[in-house]
């Protein structure tokens, strides 16, 4: 564990707490892409299949349980209590391409052809693009609530900081894995426009609006 990974994990934790707070406070899931939330649920379930077979630490297990449980809770609540508060007509990104693309990528690029390893790799590739339905929806509406922008910033910073963690681990431990590195880079590039608007507008107290 190093400071980049710890802060990254805490940013990830914070992002989910901010999202739960947004939904509770505004009593609405408006502006949140259900499809992105569904993809994150698939990402965490497929990545943490080793939950019961591979013990790392209490920290590791607690975080895994939290990420699976919270993403499941959000997907469930968006379909139940908050079903009427968000508009599926705005959430039109075709996630079949992302699900299929990640499957093809993990079948071609993986380190071991085993059940757990393939699902882990699938989750890595899928996470890289899971934000696309959310970004697509925001590009259609052209704006986002400030709390939603904070949520997305924390979520994007999490994987961005993991990229820094991988560079640091390579320098200090000689540890290197190019699949998560490349996927993390892809995700960070996809976030570039969002980060630009976040830093230039939201952090200066203005509303998140696309030019």
């Amino acid at each position: 564990m190093n400071v980049f990974r710890l802060v990254a994990d805490l940013m990830h934790l914070a992002s989910i707490l901010i999202l739960l707070l947004k939904i509770r406070k505004t009593r609405s899931a408006a502006g949140i892409s259900f499809k992105s939330q569904l993809l994150y649920l698939i990402v965490f379930v497929t990545r943490y299949l080793d939950l019961f077979t591979h013990w790392v630490s209490l920290y590791n297990t607690a975080m895994k349980v939290f990420f699976i449980a919270s993403s499941g809770y959000i997907v469930y609540q968006m379909q139940r209590r908050y079903r009427a508060t968000w508009d599926p007509a705005l959430d039109t990104f075709r996630i079949e391409f992302l699900l299929g693309g990640a499957a093809v990528m993990s079948l071609i690029f993986h380190t071991k052809f085993t059940f757990l390893e393939l699902f882990w790799t699938y989750s890595i590739w899928l996470e890289a693009v899971a934000i696309l339905p959310q970004l697509f929806q925001m590009s259609r509406t052209g704006e986002a609530e400030t709390i939603t922008a904070h949520y997305l910033f924390a979520l994007g910073a999490y994987r961005g900081l993991y990229v820094v963690n991988w560079i640091y681990r390579y320098a200090t431990e000689g540890y290197w894995e190019w699949i998560p590195f490349l996927a993390g880079m892809v995700q960070t590039v996809l976030y570039a426009d969002f980060f630009y608007v976040y830093f230039s507008r939201v952090m200066r107290g203005k509303k998140f609006e696309l030019p």
Binding site: R5, S57, K64, E117, Y175, P180
Partner: peptide, 10 residues
């Protein structure tokens, strides 16, 4: 201790 294959990460 680090685990091979990055499985100590989240």
């Amino acid at each position: 201790a680090s685990v091979a294959g990055g499985k100590d990460e989240l």
